[in-house]
Computed example of a mutant assay.
Amino acid sequence: MRPGPRAPDPPPVLLSRRELAVGWTLMLLIAVLAWAVTVTQSRRMGTGPGTMGLAPPLFLALWVVMMAAMMLPSVAPVAITWVRGIGRRSAGPARVLRTAGFVSGYLLAWTAFGLLVYAVLTVTASLVGESPGAARWIGAGAFLLAGIQQFGPLKRICLRHCRNPMFQLARYARYRRWAKDLRVGAHHGLYCVGCCWGLMAVLVPLGVMNVAAMAAVSVVIFLEKLWSRGPWLARAVGIAFLVLAVLAPFQDWLLPGLGSTPMGDMDPMGDTAPAG
């Protein structure tokens, strides 16, 4: 038997202003809670070098919280736009669950990147432990890499996607239903990783748990994606990173995440001299 004609899609269910406000509020509330956890952990742990002694599972758990704090404000418009698109076939609690799937997939992409960050921090901590002077050149290299990335083609392509995701969201609509929202969020998250990995690289010298550095990076990410002059800001930030790359070998205060100690506080034997 031939299958019968396909039933027409249900009429669109558009989000009201109230529903949009609820979506924004929930995303920002999650970000605020994530920031609260991050700040609390930072006060307990300090801005130490490397992975600060954390095992991979604990590091990744903290990393996911940090990414929720830093990235959700900038990804909220995309998530809400996706909700408006999928609203054709879902409403109420179902829409909330599917949006949660999108956000979970997005954070999954950043979790995978967190594994790479853990490996890099482990290697850099080992190098600095064997040769403390290497901190200056590792820091300079991190700033240089971040600066170059701000001008590279990967940054340009991924930033264009993050700023104008509508075309890709239309392609996502053709995904099969199985774990659709999770896969859409993960795919968009990969674009975001490609756009922002250089900005995250500066946390190696500045400190992964450096709240001030995290806040500055999250503001840059937000403006790059949502401000009309975001691409110009990306280039300006790239120039700033290149300047920091030149200064890093001579300015120890730029390297708290590598355990660098100002030269004036060191005695001739290489130990930290007491104050006064």
Results as ranks from 00 to 15, higher is better:
residue 13 V to N: 12
residue 261 T to I: 15
residue 198 G to S: 07
residue 140 A to N: 02
residue 187 H to K: 03
residue 229 R to K: 15
residue 8 P to S: 06
residue 136 R to N: 06
residue 140 A to V: 00
residue 158 C to D: 10
residue 216 A to F: 14
residue 77 P to T: 12
residue 233 L to H: 10
residue 174 R to S: 14
residue 226 L to R: 11
residue 238 G to V: 10
residue 138 I to N: 00
residue 97 L to N: 02
residue 30 I to V: 15
residue 72 L to V: 10
residue 22 V to C: 03
residue 229 R to Y: 15
residue 43 R to S: 15
residue 204 V to G: 01
residue 145 L to P: 00
residue 256 P to E: 11
residue 214 M to Q: 10
residue 209 M to P: 00
residue 222 F to V: 10
residue 84 R to I: 07
residue 187 H to A: 13
residue 236 A to P: 04
residue 154 L to S: 04
residue 39 V to N: 05
residue 275 A to G: 03
residue 169 L to T: 04
residue 211 V to F: 11
residue 62 L to G: 09
residue 10 P to E: 09
residue 58 L to T: 03
residue 203 L to F: 08
residue 272 T to V: 15
residue 255 L to V: 07
residue 167 F to P: 05
residue 35 W to Q: 02
residue 104 S to L: 15
residue 186 A to C: 11
residue 93 P to E: 09
residue 183 R to S: 07
residue 155 K to Y: 06
residue 247 L to E: 08
residue 66 M to D: 01
residue 271 D to Y: 07
residue 104 S to T: 15
residue 56 P to M: 05
residue 96 V to T: 09
residue 268 P to G: 08
residue 41 Q to G: 10
residue 74 S to G: 12
residue 182 L to R: 03
residue 46 G to N: 11
residue 67 M to H: 02
residue 186 A to Q: 03
residue 188 H to P: 00
residue 5 P to I: 06
residue 56 P to D: 05
residue 230 G to C: 14
residue 109 A to V: 01
residue 116 L to Q: 00
residue 122 T to K: 07
residue 90 S to F: 05
residue 16 S to P: 05
residue 205 P to M: 07
residue 214 M to V: 04
residue 132 P to Y: 08
residue 235 R to F: 14
residue 260 S to W: 06
residue 13 V to P: 00
residue 127 L to D: 03
residue 235 R to G: 08
residue 253 W to Y: 14
residue 127 L to Q: 09
residue 100 A to H: 04
residue 190 L to S: 02
residue 237 V to I: 15
residue 166 M to Y: 13
residue 194 G to H: 03
residue 41 Q to K: 06
residue 272 T to D: 10
residue 213 A to W: 10
residue 92 G to L: 07
residue 41 Q to L: 15
residue 161 H to Q: 11
residue 224 E to K: 05
residue 21 A to Y: 10
residue 81 T to S: 15
residue 255 L to D: 05
residue 177 R to I: 13
residue 233 L to W: 12
residue 97 L to A: 14
residue 243 V to R: 09
residue 60 L to E: 02
residue 118 Y to C: 04
residue 89 R to K: 02
residue 195 C to R: 00
residue 48 G to C: 07
residue 250 F to A: 11
residue 225 K to P: 03
residue 119 A to G: 10
residue 138 I to L: 14
residue 260 S to G: 08
residue 205 P to L: 06
residue 108 L to V: 06
residue 91 A to T: 07
residue 21 A to S: 14
residue 87 G to S: 10
residue 136 R to T: 05
residue 11 P to E: 11
residue 271 D to V: 02
residue 228 S to A: 15
residue 140 A to W: 03
residue 192 C to V: 05
residue 133 G to F: 09
residue 77 P to A: 12
residue 73 P to L: 13
residue 153 P to A: 13
residue 70 M to P: 01
residue 244 L to I: 03
residue 118 Y to K: 01
residue 52 M to A: 13
residue 179 A to L: 15
residue 201 A to H: 00
residue 12 P to G: 01
residue 257 G to A: 06
residue 199 L to F: 14
residue 62 L to A: 13
residue 113 F to V: 01
residue 123 V to C: 02
residue 94 A to M: 08
residue 143 F to I: 04
residue 205 P to S: 04
residue 1 M to C: 11
residue 47 T to R: 12
residue 145 L to I: 12
residue 143 F to V: 01
residue 186 A to L: 14
residue 122 T to H: 09
residue 97 L to Q: 07
residue 56 P to Y: 06
residue 60 L to G: 01
residue 160 R to F: 10
residue 240 A to S: 13
residue 24 W to S: 05
residue 75 V to G: 02
residue 200 M to A: 07
residue 48 G to Y: 07
residue 132 P to H: 06
residue 101 G to F: 06
residue 93 P to L: 09
